[in-house]
């Protein structure tokens, strides 16, 4: 049974772009028994710094511990829990669908249209669709499209950024 206030948190981390930095973060989750749902790493405006966006599940105490433990890592610059901030929050989905009939092709095109997705690759009997959106949009799209026959799918973890109204994501101290 899930505890009350046990929920998904979006945590954004700036780290030195160093070998070992990512390993340290991942090991922190395994060694302390935290649950990590997704993790995304990429460059930032500064090539020596990487940005990690992770989604972790836990109650407030666990998440507070995760944030504090992340801050202890020498290579970590800044850590922010973005969960309750106004933010942009995106995932990317690539999904290959079986479309062995005209009806299915039409149905896929219709859903692609509605969700603002794109068909990016086509074969005789498959369409490959790309969709960017927040978690809910992607889940909704998948739900509708699954009955048509998903052959293969890949999905990124989240990337997130605080909205300009709220200032920069990483203002202030570590």
């Amino acid at each position: 049974m899930e505890k009350p206030n046990y929920r998904k948190h979006v945590i954004s981390v700036l780290v030195e772009n160093q070998p070992g930095a990512l390993a340290r973060i991942i090991e922190l989750f395994s060694s302390r028994g935290y649950n990590i749902e997704s993790l995304n790493v990429g460059h930032t405006e500064d090539p020596t710094i990487s940005r990690i966006t992770m989604v972790a599940k836990g109650d407030e105490h666990t998440i507070e511990q995760i944030v504090k433990q992340l801050r202890r890592i020498i290579d970590v610059f800044k850590v922010r829990d973005l969960t309750d901030k106004k933010k942009l929050d995106r995932e990317l989905l690539i999904v290959r669908l079986n479309v062995d009939s005209t009806e299915k092709k039409e149905e896929v095109k219709r859903l692609v249209d509605i969700f603002g997705a794109q068909i990016v690759d086509v074969s005789h009997d498959t369409y490959t669709v790309e969709l960017t959106g927040d978690e809910e949009q992607i889940d909704a799209f998948l739900e509708l499209i699954k009955p048509l026959g998903v052959r293969e799918m890949a999905r990124t973890g989240r990337v997130a950024m605080v909205r300009a109204l709220q200032g920069d994501t990483f203002g202030g101290e570590k």
């Binding site: 070998p19 070992g20 390993a23 340290r24 090991e27 060694s31 020498i74």
Partner: peptide, 14 residues
């Protein structure tokens, strides 16, 4: 060595 000692050091370097 850095992999083995990562969880038992404050920091390590190769």
């Amino acid at each position: 060595t850095v992999g083995i000692t990562r969880p038992i050091t404050k920091h390590n370097f190769l």
